[in-house]
Amino acid sequence: MAKHFFGDTTVLLGRSLRHITRSPDTIITTAIMPVALMLMFVYVFGGAISTGSGTPYVNYMLPGILLITVASGIAYTAYRLFMDLQGGIFERFQSMPTARSSVLWAHVLTSLVANLVSLVVVMLVALLMGFRSAAGVPAWLAVAGILTLFTLALTWIAVIPGLTAKTMEGASAFSYPLIFLPFLSSAFVPTGTMPGPLRVFAENQPVTSIVNAVRALFAGQPVGDDIWVALAWCAGILVVAYGFAMRVYRRRIT
């Protein structure tokens, strides 16, 4: 049935995109939390935070906020997948002469589109709050590439609870630690003031390199090694999560 893979995926992608346009609240609720965090950090804490970089604080923390947006957005990916399994429509698709993996890929692509829209919403709010970038077209493309890769990696992580969860809460709870991770990184404050072990963790976890790379790209500065470390993290997480998710998926459909 592989000959129908692209056609079937397109049909199913159309279906889930229609779900999103009919409940745009999923996009809005995805964007609300990062926007609220951004408001709080810029207008409440921001004045007291010294980043030592001389740039407006909103410029400093936007990369971290974007990662939080993706981390909260993929909870809906798991939720949508879980609902399909619960409702029985997943089994209907699996018992039809349809390319079987299309069902999964349609969810993954939908996740990319939905997160992209949420990212744009958050970015627009940041612009209103005074975010400005010196980045040229290549730098923007690099930012888009990193965020896409990051979204894909997290989406494949989200597929796992989507396929295995027993309850709706269980399907989305995995995203909480992912949302929290940027707080233990260079996203909001420089890591230099953190105590020893925490600092070691913060400087060596994936979020820091991604944040540093995106921040440098936005500022139009050289990115150094951070971008390669960031890409390596994203690609590594993607490969491991994909492999694990496919294993869970195969067990689920046989």
Binding site: V11, R22, G87, G88
Partner: peptide, 25 residues
């Protein structure tokens, strides 16, 4: 296969559900 619980897409209309299955077949 018609499973134990109506396997229909709640968010789509009835017609869209039928069109979806026809496309997938």
């Amino acid at each position: 296969l018609t499973g134990q619980f109506a396997a229909v897409d709640e968010i789509l209309s009835g017609r869209e559900n039928l069109v979806l299955v026809a496309r997938l077949r």
